[in-house]
Design a protein around this nucleic acid. Sequence first.
DNA 1: CTGCTTGCAAAGGCTTTGCAGAACA
DNA 2: TGTTCTGCAAAGCCTTTGCAAGCAG
Lengths: 134, 134
Amino acid sequence: MDDRELEGLLRSKGVSPTSQRMQVGKILFERPQHVCAEEILNKVHEAGYRVSKATVYNTLNLFVTRGLIRELNVDPVRMFYDSTTHAHHHFYNVDTGEVMDIPPDQMNFAIMPKLPEGTVAESVEVTIKVRNKH
Amino acid sequence: MDDRELEGLLRSKGVSPTSQRMQVGKILFERPQHVCAEEILNKVHEAGYRVSKATVYNTLNLFVTRGLIRELNVDPVRMFYDSTTHAHHHFYNVDTGEVMDIPPDQMNFAIMPKLPEGTVAESVEVTIKVRNKH
DNA sequence: CTGCTTGCAAAGGCTTTGCAGAACA
DNA sequence: TGTTCTGCAAAGCCTTTGCAAGCAG
């Protein structure tokens, strides 16, 4: 995704494309991936830009709110962010901390449950935790 | 579950039934439920016993390791513990923080995916996040 | 000029840890 | 007597917040 395209994406979600947000966005949307805040921070710095930790967190939360990325509750300690928002699910390797997509054609629900009274679905998250064979 | 039964359960998993562990266990296994560490602490105190926060955490982690309870990654802030370990899944109400079981007959996978090379499954966690209507 | 954004440092909340004393076998 | 367990306080970590300075329209 080039800068022009990214800028359009942000604007289309009502996010003003400041230079910091562009930096964070560039890394997120470079390819589909699962990252935590600190990885973003590191990658931005490696790319030679200066963005503060607070701004990374602010930006990630903003992107989540505007539906640009998805939060993943897979790691008990850190929040992960998924740079694609379409429905798909994850393996989480508890030994390595790695998050991987489950190929969409390999996962299907036979039945979807009725939601509790008075609620609407926000997301469906399937996490298969795996461990390395020793 | 009475004390004798609980003691047997702990011993069967190689956990020495100290009085603190019995207190924590009594609350957990009173009924199937989803609790965080602080709720356990409160309930123990309400019941008139003194168990420290550190011991509650130690005990919960020990119980997880020995397969007595399950960790639930549903809340981004707090760890929840499920006092039943058989396969079942959860609704998480993001407005109230409430965790509810999905009735097992209402949730079924049509296909289960092939695991990544060299790994074994540890658990499958399905969380349907819901929000209160308007 | 006004509102939004950023960055720093500090605060906040959950969980773990170090260590000394207590309990237990 | 030696190991295990507990409790307190402190530390650690991730994330949020308060606030002053910067930037954009």
